[in-house]
Each structure stands twice: as structure tokens, then as C-alpha cells.
Design a protein around this nucleic acid. Structure first.
Lengths: 344, 344
DNA sequence: TATTAGCACTCGAAACGACCGAGTGCTAAT
DNA sequence: ATTAGCACTCGGTCGTTTCGAGTGCTAATA
């Protein structure tokens, strides 16, 4: 369908446009290594345009890749650049501090990934839904306040301070803790979440007249732990990209990113490995001129996590692909170590 | 010095400029209620300019208040607008949820204040430095992880999960906890912080060969609790203000606000009550075209806290002053209640 | 003496237009 | 199939003009 030269031209259009941000013209392509006259290149350009791979912003400008063009490039022409050893070791180094809870590692990873790419990065830890509630503690802090601590499967910890309502005695609390330990600890979180709305209130009714107040508290705590949390790094990097035409849109994007649910569904990826979505493929009007690279990673029997970066449509795909690819492996390795340590 | 009409004119210039953002001309002032011809007003304007209260962006524009003009307005002309009952009750309502730890109340207050003013808001809880360490708990989570919980004076809680180094046995941990409980609980935080670097290591040396690793952990945890934390709400509101000329400056301001130390010293206020700093008075080049309203509030014997808002120099001072004034009292009352509850 | 009407003047913002040049499409020659 | 040549397009830049809000000054007025 496309001649080799046409493939070369498309590749260069994508890469030069990524490098300069400008539309690419026939002479530029000639100088960039296409072995043909500018006229010939123009013919090819015109062909590529007819086929929908590139388009021109206006008559007398150069060409710019279309979404379809990017798609084709990403699917067939992209050669992931290998990550330099220095970068690799800088990734490792940034994970090298002795982190504490899993959440903090995940949070840090979003930070590092965004620094590395200078775009906005997302990080979601290994699948939460398969996790079990492995520990539940309530620690008295003073007369009126308690701290509830929830430990899930491995390493993930949520805590919340709460004030005891007037009508609840410390004996009541004891009983509730015992019930929770009996009935909930060791169960998958999803079960916990369900029982909390069905079975537990029934049991509590046997002991208390009005279990509602205290139940609300525990429900909110456990609910917190249940929610998966996507960490975001480098949100301000979006401001550098000239793709945010006005401040208003930036605020919209920012508030989009403040909403866990929306972010969650944004970086949801259907398939294994790395997926690249370009412009309108993201199916979100706000992000129409951006691209999203999503990658999943497996941590042995501990489920799979997700990382992602969001940048301009004309990002340097091969470099970004390389970074994301390297990063997902590093993170998976690091987490495998982390779990191994916990198990030892 | 200034005639009554000149005072009126200055007031109107400030207020109209706040309302429209445009320089104010003589005709506008005439229509806005100054009882004199535009020529007369021009004379007064020219006088006010000579005295340094107003200035003109360029020859054929209207006048704009100078910093000195704002200063005079704020010091002598400003009538704080009273806050409507609805607003007052909406403030109260937003505090009405059953909050848990003090930090969360303070965080929420920054949020509410920024919503109310549509500027950026800061909130610092009642003086931390006078606080004492009243509780210290270490809770085992699993084989390798512990959670340390620190409770200060009243209601303030910090927690941190950490992984136990290989060379530390659970007996060691027990001993350390005991030492901390003996030597540190009940002391003011500042003492804790100091002892942690002097006395405690000496004691530990008696028991362990290499106390360093474990000490690092505790030091970082306690250090965390020691740090005062200013909460910020509505940072994105700065983007609405047309005062941020370019995205670059916004990023600078944003990173300024990401630095606890800088924010802390920013909202440091010398005097009691409400203080208004205008433009260059803030002594920060980045904020040269903004104003900062800082207010302190007392919570009986629990120290004093600070709230602040940061907005454009031409903000509606009387309204903002009113809001901040109302807010500091509401917050003080609410916290007084909160502490009363804890003491009961 | 304070106020006001009148008028010439200033200067930024917006509208206009000429020009430039990168880039195109097409045609005819190789 | 490729290329040289050329007329054409159109956004961006830059200087000019126009417009109008606002000023300062002067002379008349209360």
C-alpha cells in the first residue's frame, strides 16, 4: 500500500513534528534524509494526505500527522528507544530509599515517572480488589478519640482518627472490635465491604439499640481502604505543554484529575502491556489534543498495577514508550522484592 | 490634608477599580456619585496623584490606586462589610461534619475559606510549639511492619508505617518504646525533639550496639509531628486572577506554595488580629501584584492559629476583611468547642 | 477662591493593509 | 517515476491609520 519512502516520510513527519512542534514541509524532509527531490516528496505527502495519515493546518503550511497517522506510526513504525543506563540507574536509585507503606512507594513512583518524562504521570498499585483484610486495630488516643488502623493483604495501610460519640461506651467499642476481628479479618476486601452492609448490622442489633452512629464510622474507614487510589505526579507539567489553550481548560483538566473515579476510568486499560491512546481515542473532549500511554505490570501473585503518562499528541513516542516499558519492569521488580521482604 | 471630596474620590477609585479591574476616569467618578463636575474631579485626581495615592498606567488612561493609596484606604477609609447571615450559617454548616483529627479541621477550613473568597486560602492550626507529646504507640501490623502513632497535646495525630530493619529484634522495639514512653511522653514537643538528638541516643547505646538505623526512623516520625503544617485551599484560584501574567510565574508561585517553610514565613504575622499587606509590602517579588490578608485567632488556653487569603491587589477589601473577620471567630469558636469536647 | 465648560492633546487598542516567505500543486521535461 | 520550474496561497509580521477615553490647561463663572 505505502511505498518504503512513504513510510520513511510518515515516520519523519511524526518525529520532526514531535521535535519542533511545527508542521513539516517537503524541503525539511529532504534535508532530514529522504533521498528524493522536494517535488517527489510533495507527491508522496499529497498521497499520504489523501489516505488520511497527515493533514495540513492550512494551505501554505507543512503537514502534521493525523490521529490515524499517529495510530499507524505507533502500531507499525515505532521503534521503542532503549533507555540509557544512567536513566535506568536513576530510576532504581529513586526507589532505593527505605519506603514504608506500599502507598508511599506507589505515590513516589508517579513522582519519578513524571520527572522522567516531564509529563503528567499516574500510578495505581497492584490490584486492590483481590486484597484481603489482614489486620484491624483500634488504638485509644485519649478520652474521646480512637485511631482505627486497617492493614490489607500486604503492606497497604489506612488509618483514621475518630471521635467516639457520647452514647457509645468503651465496652461497646471492645465488642465491635471483636466482631470485626471474628467476622471480617481474613476476608477479601470486597466481602468485607458487603458484609459491612448486610450481616454486621444484624449482629450488632443483638447488642445495641442504635448501632447506626458507630457503624457509620467503621463503614467510612473500611470504605476508605477499599477505594483504589491513583496517585498523580507532575500535574503542573501540563502547563508547559502549549496544548492547553487557555487557563480555563487547564482548570477543567485539573479538576478532572482531582476526581479519583474519573482518573481511575481514564487509565483503565483493556489489554495487557502497554497501550497508547491518541487524541480523540481517549474519548474525552478535554484531552482531545493529548495522548495517553498506559502500561500494566504484574507482581507475581500479588496482582497487577498500572502506570500511565499523559502528554501532548506530538510527544516523542519512541522515547516515552521506552521509558514506560523500562519503568514498568523496574517497578514490578522493586515491588516483588518488597513483597518478598515482607514474606520473609 | 485631604478634603472630604478627595477622600470620597480615593475610596471610589479603590472600589471601582476592584469591581471592574479597569482604571477609573473622571466621568466615571462623576456618574458614580461624586457631586462635582468632571473638571473638578480631574483637579482632585491630579492632586491625589501628586500626593502619591494614585497613578496612571499611561497618559490617556484613568487612575489606579498606588500601594500607598491602598494603604491609606485600608488604614483609614475601609469599612468592613458585614457578612450576611446566610454566609455565616454556611460557614458554620461546613464545620458541622463530625471531624476527626485537628489537622482535618484545619485542612477543611482552608478549603472553606478559599471557596468563600474565591482566592487562595491558608490555615495554620493553633500554635504547635507549645504542644506536648501526650501519647506514643507502636502497633505491629505484620511480620515486618509497624505503625508508630504520635498524639500531641490534644487531638493532633501523626502516624507512620515503617519496616523493621533486619538487625532489630522485637525485643529491641519493646525496649525503645519503653524508653520513649518513660523519657518523652508528657514533654513539650520541642524538648522531645532535642532529647531525641542528645539524651536518647546515649541511653540506647547502653542497650544496643548500633542504634543508628532504628533511631533514624523514630527521629523522622517525631520530626514529622513537630513540623507545623500550613494547609492551603484553592490554589487554582490564582489562575482566575488576571494578575498572573504568564504560566511560568504561576508555576513559580505554585512551587512557592509547595514549600512549607516559605508558606509558613509568608503568613507569619507580627501583630494580633487582622493584618493586610499590599503588593510590595509582602516583600516577595513573585507576589508583587497581590495582597495578603492575615488573621490570627485565639483558642483560649490552646494557643493561637492563623488564617490568610492571597488575592489580587485590587481585591474587594471591605468584603474580604469582613469574611476573614467572621471566619476567624467562627473557627476559634468551633475549635474551642472541639477542645471542650475532648476535655469532657 | 472654588468650580466648571471647552478644547487641544496624548496614547493605547483595534482595524487595516502591504509584504514576506514557507509551502503547495501543477505542468512539462528528463 | 522523478524532477525542475513556476504561479499561487495564506498565515504572520510590521508599519500606518483611526478611534475614543481620558487628561491638562485656560478662560469664564458663581
Amino acid at each position: 500500500m505505502l511505498s518504503q519512502r512513504q513510510l520513511d516520510i510518515l515516520t519523519l513527519v511524526v518525529q520532526l513534528h514531535a521535535a519542533t512542534g511545527e508542521p513539516v514541509g517537503s524541503k525539511t524532509l529532504m534535508n532530514a534524509g529522504i533521498n528524493a527531490s522536494s517535488a517527489t516528496i510533495r507527491n508522496d505527502l499529497s498521497f499520504l494526505e489523501k489516505e488520511g495519515f497527515i493533514e495540513k493546518p492550512h494551505t501554505s503550511a507543512g503537514r502534521v500527522p493525523s490521529v490515524q497517522g499517529y495510530r499507524f506510526y505507533v502500531d507499525h513504525l515505532l521503534k521503542p528507544s532503549t533507555v540509557s543506563n544512567e536513566e535506568l540507574s536513576s530510576i532504581r536509585q529513586s526507589f532505593n530509599r527505605n519506603f514504608t507503606a506500599l502507598n508511599e512507594i506507589i505515590e513516589k513512583s508517579a513522582q519519578v515517572l513524571s520527572d522522567l518524562t516531564s509529563y503528567t504521570a499516574f500510578s495505581l498499585g497492584p490490584e486492590m480488589n483481590e486484597r484481603k483484610l489482614t489486620g484491624f486495630r483500634v488504638v485509644p488516643l485519649n478520652n474521646q478519640q480512637l485511631m482505627a488502623i486497617i492493614v490489607t493483604d500486604r503492606g497497604n495501610v489506612e488509618s483514621q482518627v475518630f471521635t467516639v460519640p457520647d452514647d457509645v461506651s468503651s465496652g461497646d467499642i471492645e465488642k465491635i472490635i471483636q466482631i470485626i476481628n471474628d467476622k471480617l479479618v481474613g476476608q477479601p476486601l470486597i466481602t468485607v465491604y458487603n458484609k459491612l452492609r448486610t450481616e454486621i448490622p444484624l449482629i450488632l442489633q443483638r447488642y445495641f439499640q442504635t448501632p447506626r452512629g458507630i457503624m457509620d464510622i467503621f463503614e467510612s474507614i473500611l470504605g476508605n481502604a477499599f477505594e483504589e487510589r491513583v496517585y498523580i505526579g507532575g500535574q503542573m507539567n501540563l502547563l508547559d505543554v502549549d496544548l492547553i489553550p487557555d487557563v480555563h481548560q487547564f482548570k477543567l483538566v485539573y479538576s478532572l484529575m482531582s476526581n479519583q473515579n474519573q482518573v481511575s476510568s481514564l487509565i483503565q486499560t483493556p489489554k495487557e502491556g502497554i497501550s497508547i491512546r491518541i487524541g480523540e481515542e481517549i474519548q474525552n473532549d478535554l484531552l482531545a489534543n493529548m495522548s495517553l500511554i498506559t502500561a500494566s505490570y504484574d507482581v507475581a501473585e500479588h496482582g497487577t498495577g498500572t502506570i500511565a503518562i499523559l502528554g501532548p499528541t506530538n510527544m516523542a513516542y519512541s522515547r516515552m514508550f521506552g521509558i514506560v516499558e523500562a519503568f514498568r519492569h523496574e517497578l514490578a521488580d522493586y515491588l516483588a522484592d518488597y513483597y518478598r521482604l515482607l514474606d520473609s
